[in-house]
Design a protein around this nucleic acid. Structure first.
Length: 289
DNA sequence: ATACCAATGTCAGTTACCTCA
DNA sequence: CATGAGGTAACTGACATTGGT
């Protein structure tokens, strides 16, 4: 396609790519989200080419994190145990003040939902973590204790996120069990992770559009200048030199001279092959065609 | 077949905690 | 030590989908 040929010059094709060649993956996350279509990010890290919609949002991060994660996994189980201990400590320490998502929510529907997240063992954990409302009633503290995930936990979550950006209940349960976290925590982590991914994608898209804008501005400036030059040239031409203004009426897409002199275009002395790239991508063909 | 409702999952936006410069 | 900024876990409300009645 001729359009792609000039992608590097103007970046316009990339703009198109955002909408067409970047499939349901991430080009329009908002729309996907609205429809609850799950963007699979699996393909993102494997795309090394400049395909904005797939690569920009992740910007290679998963690669790095994958490496980190796998390295961490090689360390052994001690850190995992440590993580578990830390979690238990955190849970124990926070239990007087902290809250489970279940108990903190005043929405009955949410309560049911979150309670159903919990397997029997995790219900036990949750019960240990206790209820914020009741605890607050007891000692008045309003601590919203924030668990800091360990490196190992984060790494495993990242690893899992690379495989599925969303989790089904079974996966969530399994992951939670593996990490010794509550399913709700895993769920929240994935939610936040998706949000971060999207935010990053948005930032990159924004940068890309800025560059597009700059390119188009430059292009516009150049075209204006050229137009001025052509006008000046035309004014300076002697009358007998008045020819069809081929330069100005040439069809941008087929490069045939149109307008008043179109019927004689094939015989025109003007060849017009000089700067066809002026008219790439977004230019509509002239009415002469 | 259709309408209604409850349950559930996901999201955007926000809050609050924690760490670090 | 105090503090502000940034990162992020957790929360909230809204919306869409799904399955049962």
């Amino acid at each position: 396609m001729g359009f792609d040929d000039h992608a590097c010059n103007t970046g316009l094709v990339l703009g198109l790519g955002l909408t067409s060649s970047a499939p349901q993956e991430s080009c329009n996350l908002t729309k996907l989200a609205k429809n609850n279509i799950k963007p699979s990010l699996n393909s993102a890290p494997t795309s090394g080419a400049f395909e904005p919609s797939l690569t920009l949002g992740l910007s290679g991060e998963p690669y790095h994190q994958q490496t980190v994660a796998s390295n961490i996994y090689k360390v052994g189980n001690s850190s995992q145990d440590e993580a578990i201990d830390l979690y238990r400590q955190a849970a124990a320490a926070s239990s007087p003040h902290s809250h489970s998502a279940v108990s903190n929510s005043f929405s009955s529907g949410r309560v049911v939902k979150r309670e159903r997240d919990l397997s029997s063992e995790e219900v036990d954990v949750d019960e240990k973590v206790s209820s914020r409302v009741s605890d607050e009633d007891e000692d008045g503290s309003n601590a919203r204790k924030k668990l800091r995930l360990t490196k190992e936990q984060s790494a495993l979550l990242e690893e899992s996120f690379k495989q599925h950006s969303t989790l089904n209940p079974k996966q969530k349960q399994a992951l939670a069990r593996q990490l010794n976290l509550r399913p709700r925590q895993v769920e929240v982590w994935f939610q936040n992770r998706r949000a971060r991914t999207k935010l990053k994608q948005t930032e990159v898209d924004c940068e890309f559009l800025k560059k597009c804008c700059e390119t188009l501005t430059d292009e516009n400036r150049r075209l204006q200048k050229e137009l001025q030059e052509l006008k000046a040239l035309k004014l300076n031409q002697p009358l007998y030199m008045h020819m069809p203004t081929a330069t100005l009426t040439m069809c941008p897409s087929c490069e045939r001279i149109g307008g008043a002199g179109s019927e004689g275009s094939s015989k025109s002395p003007f060849s017009m092959a000089s700067k066809p790239h002026f008219y790439n991508h977004f230019t509509n063909p002239s009415a002469a065609c």
